[in-house]
Design a protein around this nucleic acid. Structure first.
Lengths: 330, 330
DNA sequence: AGCATTTACGTAAGTACTTACGTCATTATT
DNA sequence: AATAATGACGTAAGTACTTACGTAAATGCT
């Protein structure tokens, strides 16, 4: 049984590595047969330096997509063997330029026909049927250059989580969770002030009775985040008491809650959404900015009821971009 | 500049490795994000053991195409982490069977959706255009299973050397080389006997004057091997004084010389080729056998003129197989 | 010109495997 | 039944790279 083949796309890296080692082992044997005292791993440097002016360590590392310590090590071995020598760069005293010695050039020429044999044998092997391995590799590398694997998978994970997070309305049974989540957040650097305490103590009076809204994010029966819309006047709400379980960070819970809140505010015929933030909340501010919130100068803003250094952001709910953003996701 | 891509088929192993590491790095990041204390390299074992009876170290190693110490190490880490446990095999006391703990099963289930995301993202990436990387990999692996890279390249190198070795006739200027090569060979374990000395001293009288032939193998202006045909009677020759420069072993020089000698004997209307060998010469005997030489019982053979323990082999030159073998190569 | 930043290189240590080797249990052979 | 050969581990050391970090030279900034 070959479980790695069984796993297919999932174990691609293992499979690539396996094939690479198999080929590398055989290449080593071929060079060993030549009784030339030449190591397969020296090949890229020898071929790169052949018939070309001296080149620096980092420049070689870049061309071979290796790290510079790797090139440094290989260069050391090849210098000991007498294949290359290094000279100081006249212009730049940090650089050590590598070039082939006459002996190195001789070895390169001796190996050239063998390299042609390897090339021909490989070609014959990889382009047997329709699909050519080198072409597939190039295409895969290009695809990764456009968007790496991490981003591709994260995108899918986030999309999945986004779909599986449900936004639900306030219910009496959730009051303790509203408080817990917010306290957890506030304890993390901020003091709980009187204004906070009143809302958390009795959200039904402080938020809902004033024509406000409280939303919760639910993931598999667990409430992992919350936020509230507090009525300011007939055309505006304050988005506040946004809190996400610290264990669930990075799952776009905050974005999901904010977008639902915006959509609800629009539904309630509000024209403007305000919120208060402080410069320390970097992740949160990034989210707000990406949703279209902009700074409100102090003289145009409502008074700040908290003692912590804060300022207001606002979002125009009549703007087309905002309406489209929300529609798309709901 | 990307020299590895430039090299194409020649640097396939490096390229595979590079891509493998790139994918592995991203996979590690994805698992790290999950705050599950799970290492990417554990994945193959976890997935293999999932929902399956306990399995032994070597059996797992085989399924994953890893060495057993690798599996042993991974198992150690996973056991410390509490993902797997090991139980003694009832039937075989050498075996340590690995199985998932309930905790391990839970982690496996938690990761399952992420694996699906990785699978989907990989699929999207590798099968962009016509050529699918996984298909190419499978085909390449199959091609290597049929004939590995070492054999493929060796075949080409040998064929190239075979073509570049020229077989030439005796000339006065080569007499010293005929002697050198044979002395080199004889010193290597055998004593130079009187019979040898006479021939090496004066091959023109001992071989050529008696209607014999001396051939040399030339590689780029260097004489690297020789052999002789000594006339026994009107229908048979002795193939003797075959010697190849020790530095040029493994290049099929001996085969090339022997085949030329056979072809020359046929041209000279001989019906039988004899040669003397001893059981110690394993490589040479392999060559003779592969050319069709067979053992001649002592009572049918000419007397043995040397003191070393020897026997005769003979080749029927009228046989179809022999004639075809020689024709093809000349 | 003076200072911070960037770049080039070297060294050390880590990584995810491998090969090499030793021990003990099992199986095959005589 | 004794002995040899094979198989399953476990441990140590090697491999071909990597990341991390430190130093000195070059470059950018004010």
């Amino acid at each position: 049984m070959d479980w790695i083949e069984e796993l297919g796309e999932l174990a691609l890296a293992s499979r690539l590595r396996r094939l690479s080692e198999r080929l590398a082992r055989d290449a080593s044997r071929i060079y060993a047969d030549q009784s030339l005292d030449f190591e397969a791993r020296w090949f890229p440097i020898l071929s790169l330096l052949g018939g070309r002016p001296a080149d620096s360590i980092t420049s070689i590392a870049e061309a071979l997509r290796l790290t510079h310590p790797a090139v440094n090590q290989l260069a050391g071995e090849m210098e000991t063997r007498g294949l290359i020598r290094s000279v100081k760069d006249k212009q730049d005293d940090r650089k050590r330029l590598l070039e082939l010695t006459p002996d190195g050039e001789k070895v390169r020429e001796a190996l050239q026909p063998i390299w042609e044999d390897i090339r021909a044998a490989t070609r014959e092997m990889i382009s047997r049927s329709g699909s050519d391995l080198l072409t597939s590799l190039r295409e895969t590398e290009n695809a990764l250059d456009r968007k790496n694997m991490y981003e591709r998978v994260r995108g899918r994970i986030n999309a999945r989580l986004f779909r599986s997070i449900e936004i639900i309305d306030y219910a009496k049974s959730l009051r303790h969770r509203f408080r817990e989540l917010n306290e957890q957040w506030l304890e993390n650097g901020f003091q709980i002030e009187e204004a906070d305490r009143r809302i958390l103590e009795d959200p039904e009076t402080e938020i809902l009775a004033g024509d406000g809204v409280i939303l919760f994010a639910r993931l598999n029966d667990r409430i992992i985040g919350t936020c509230a819309l507090r009525r300011i006047d007939s055309t505006s709400f304050e988005l506040c008491k946004m809190a996400v379980d610290p264990m669930e960070r990075g799952k776009q819970v905050g974005r999901r809650l904010a977008m639902s809140a915006i959509s609800r505010a629009i539904y309630l015929r509000a024209g403007r959404l305000l919120l208060m933030t402080s410069p320390d909340l970097i992740a949160a501010n990034g989210l707000y900015r990406s949703l279209g919130f902009t700074y409100v100068p102090d003289d145009e803003a409502p008074p700040v009821p908290y003692e912590r250094s804060s300022y207001w952001l606002a979002l125009d709910l009549n703007e087309g971009a905002t309406r489209k953003l929300v529609e798309k996701s709901v």
